[in-house]
Amino acid sequence: MEIIVASTVGILTAGGVYLLLRLRTFPVILGLTLLSYAVNVFLFASGRLAIDQSPILSPYSYGDTTYTDPLPQALVLTAIVISFGMTAVLVMIGLGAYLEAESDRIDLEPEMAESGKDDSA
């Protein structure tokens, strides 16, 4: 199971980083989403893995029940919601940039970059 979780984190990171390095806004947003999955799973896993040990206290047990670590779960829960907010802001910025500039490139168009250089020189 540990191998599965670790490989999941790894492949999500790899996919996220690759998409982050693309040249258009939309893949970058996709990449960021993948990367936030990876980070969430990574953080969650830092509480170590456990099966059937939900951190829901059972009234029928007296001290012998073990529970998984609830703290990373609480942190990840808010992280999931916040990363949604972040994605939404980015989407809006990306959309605004596309509508204003008529292009969703993440860098300047080659000819615009040239003219930008001329201005600064």
Binding site: E2, I3, V5, A6, S7, V9, G10, I11, L12, T13, A14, G15, G16, V17, Y18, L21, R22, A38, F42, A45, S46, G47, R48, L49, D69, L71
Partner: peptide
């Protein structure tokens, strides 16, 4: 980019595997 991504993914995956195999104080 593929190389960077694979290295990053491999690194993070290995790190995750490394701590998953070890206990911590919580």
């Amino acid at each position: 980019d593929g190389l960077i991504a694979l290295t990053a993914g491999g690194g993070v995956g290995a790190l995750a595997y490394a701590f998953l195999m070890r206990d911590i104080e919580t």
